[in-house]
Computed example of a mutant assay.
Amino acid sequence: MKYRRLGKTDFSVSEISLGTWQVGGSWGSGFDNSSADKIINTAIDNGINFIDTADVYEAGLSEAAVGRVVRSRKEEVYVATKCGRQINPHTNENYQPKVLRKYVEDSLKNMGLECLDLIQLHCPPTEVFYRPEIFELFDRLKDEGKIKHLGISVEKIEEALKGIEYENVATVQIIFNMFRQRPKELFFEQVKKRDVGVIVRVPLASGLLTGKFSAASTFDADDHRNFNRDGAFFDKGETFSGIPYDLGLKAVEGLKALFPNHTNLAPIALRWILDHPEVGCIIPGASKEAHLLSNITASDLPPLTEGQHQQVDAIYDRLIRKHVHHSW
């Protein structure tokens, strides 16, 4: 495993880290504590030292699993969680410092930790990024020893650029992959100037970029890849990176032709992300130990060639760009 500095946090984090949205079972299949513990322990065994979770993942069970495993290990493992998505209705007006404080304190209790390495606002409404009092709260929590750093998880480039204007925002978690390329423009330029760490989520476009799906693939009724393709429950950019499923399959066929020696495209897709030095770490999820071990291999792959990058960009420009580039 290779490690990178995560912006102004100064954390040295595994470039392939772990996201835990579906760590205890694939989306829609329920949560299994023994499976979660096994995957998280295997991650740490293989050098992963940064784990991302959220209070809404499986109603707190994901957080509890992360805390349980991290407390049992001797290695230094950085724990990042998120707050705000429990707010219902999820509106700007309902984002209040006292509400967010309670969520942070609840996460600490749920994980059995005294301090969070990183707390992230969890994709709040855009208006929240224009309210200094929200960001000031986290300075107080830091002074109280409850958090070390504040980050933001965003849907839109606009939100990221506004959020990093606050000096206490140390990281941005954002969607960036072969099918969502806009962050490598102005956003990467600005985070580099401000020494902000970049955490990449949805790196495999909800599994599309593994190359294992087809027109005949089906998804459980409770799987967001079934019920959220049009953004009925949350931002549709979180599902297949916001592109129509059939179009994604067509683009993947182009990638398979470009990388004919790789039956599993996941490590290639992750390597593509790692080729951008502004990225601090990637947090692919894993519902099976095999998925985790596959993802880790990306760290040992050589960078893609300039020609390969150009051809990936050509597929994006021809098929994907008009569907996503200016929406997020």
Rank of each mutant, 00 (worst) to 15 (best):
N49R: 11
D52W: 02
G7D: 06
V70Y: 06
L121S: 07
Q311T: 13
C115P: 05
L319H: 09
I243K: 06
I164S: 03
K2M: 12
A286L: 09
G307A: 07
K146T: 06
L204D: 01
K98D: 07
N49S: 10
N261G: 01
S299V: 08
L186P: 00
L301F: 14
D317W: 11
P89K: 14
L150Y: 05
A298G: 12
D32Q: 08
F227K: 01
L274Y: 02
I40R: 00
G24D: 13
V69Y: 03
T126H: 07
A64R: 09
D106Q: 05
G47T: 10
A290P: 00
E63R: 04
H323M: 08
I48C: 10
D117I: 12
L100M: 14
I268E: 11
R180D: 11
P302Q: 14
E158I: 10
L186D: 14
G163W: 00
G19S: 05
H90K: 15
I174L: 14
V99W: 03
N110S: 13
H325F: 13
K38P: 00
R194V: 04
E93K: 13
I320V: 15
F11N: 14
L150K: 05
I39K: 04
R318W: 02
R182Y: 15
P183I: 12
H90S: 08
S206M: 04
Y95N: 00
R271L: 04
N110M: 14
E75N: 14
F240W: 12
S153Q: 11
F31I: 08
E185I: 02
L116D: 06
W27S: 08
A298W: 09
R225T: 09
G145I: 10
D235W: 15
N49Y: 09
L18D: 03
I51C: 11
K74Y: 07
A269I: 13
I119C: 13
M1A: 15
I157N: 09
N261A: 12
Y3L: 07
S294N: 08
E133M: 01
K256A: 10
H90F: 15
V23W: 05
L249S: 05
I152P: 01
K288D: 04
